[in-house]
Amino acid sequence: MAHLSDENLERARRLVAVYPEPRSALIPLCHLAQAQDGWLTPEAMEDVAALVGVTPAEVHGTATFYDMLHTEPVGRHVVAVCTNVACMLAGAYELLEHAQERLGVHAGQTTDDGEFTLEEAECLAGCDTAPCVQVNHRFFGPLDAASFDQLVEDLRTGVLAGQVPRHGVLCRVERTVGLLAHEADDSGVGAGEGSAP
């Protein structure tokens, strides 16, 4: 029995099909599994492994290399406060300190109610709105203590649900077509026809 839902298995197969080699879909499938469960469960990793043709250990070993893939449960909202240099120069460490107090957890921890995981992040490429914060990879900034509190409040009450989906949901736009070029191509250019040397 697969852990991924039928619908997600179908999505996963479509994703595998857009790559010349199945293993390339490994990370997209990990994102898909995270979208379903909020984090990357061992059961989902087994499904991913079977779908791309590697061992579950290889999926785990690969996933743990990447900051966005969580192999432990996280909160519904992962709040990432950037403290890299541009944000630091705009008061990011003070903001992080405030965030820790406000949420009652240290960076790297999750609140008891499972609502929030707080992270200290590296540069998020939002340095023009420093100090910059992402919630489930949606951008907010510049933030001060008051606007941070407001953000937390809005996340709790669900006012921002349209803008900030549950953790793990990354790209809500699906690819609508498969690979077309290699099918009809008779010009002899044909990439994408299985394994290259």
Binding site: V18, S24, I27, M68, E122, R175, A184, G192
Partner: peptide, 16 residues
């Protein structure tokens, strides 16, 4: 034209 191309948008997962 006779030119054909597939383009895939691939997401990273957080690693500088």
């Amino acid at each position: 034209s006779s030119f054909s191309l597939d383009l895939v948008v691939h997401p990273g997962a957080g690693a500088y």
